[in-house]
């Protein structure tokens, strides 16, 4: 009896972890923006859970950033947050939160988590993201508790998905 129960438990666990679990995307409820200091944001970088994090630095005025946003959104839609979490870190000017960032998120109906990073002294925090980052955007970090990669570049859809796979398969 105990044997059967454990099999059922394991099975149900497996089913609930299916990667293609459909996320509920509610059209009229786009992602909310959180405004974070670097200290607050750093806690995400230090996460030691089982997720893979895809953190993209972008801004509403950055054309190549906007071009690649759909690929990040695709990841958010494809994977359950417990497995892969996409965080779009906006480097829009903090005084443009109401006039630019929120309208943009609403218009594009972004589903990924958006953080407006309100961190002045860039020379202090940029190297903490990655020593080699010159500060140009778009830039992306993908990491989990085992490894991390940093990309100061624009992605095509295939390139991004391929990079992400390296993290999910290991």
């Amino acid at each position: 009896m105990f044997k059967y129960a454990s099999i059922i438990i394991i099975l149900s666990f497996l089913i609930s972890c299916k990667p293609e679990t459909k996320k509920e995307v509610i059209d009229n409820l786009p992602s909310k923006v959180t405004v974070a200091s670097f200290k607050e944001f750093e806690q995400i970088l230090n996460s030691a859970d089982d997720k893979t994090y895809v953190i993209n630095f972008w801004a509403t005025w950055c054309a190549p950033c906007i071009k690649e946003l759909p690929y990040f959104e695709e990841i958010t839609n494809k994977y359950p947050t417990e497995k892969v979490e996409v965080i779009l870190v906006s480097l829009d000017f903090p005084d443009k939160l109401e006039s630019k960032l929120i309208p943009f998120i609403n218009k594009k109906k972004l589903v990924s988590k958006v953080i407006l990073l309100d961190a002045p002294n860039e020379n202090e925090w940029i190297p903490k993201i990655n020593e080699s980052w010159s500060g140009a955007i778009p830039a992306t970090i993908i990491f989990n508790k085992n490894k991390q990669s940093f990309y100061e570049q624009s992605f095509t859809r295939d390139e991004l998905l391929k990079e992400l796979e390296k993290f999910i398969k290991t």
Partner: peptide
């Protein structure tokens, strides 16, 4: 003011304190 500090140091014949710094910017198109 990193740039001013660097030029001031050069003008005074002194060593520049911070020779490389980082800032956010737009990628080159």
């Amino acid at each position: 003011k990193y740039t001013e500090n660097a030029v001031d140091a050069l003008l005074a014949g002194k060593t520049i304190n911070e020779t490389t710094t980082k800032a956010i910017g737009c990628s080159i198109k």
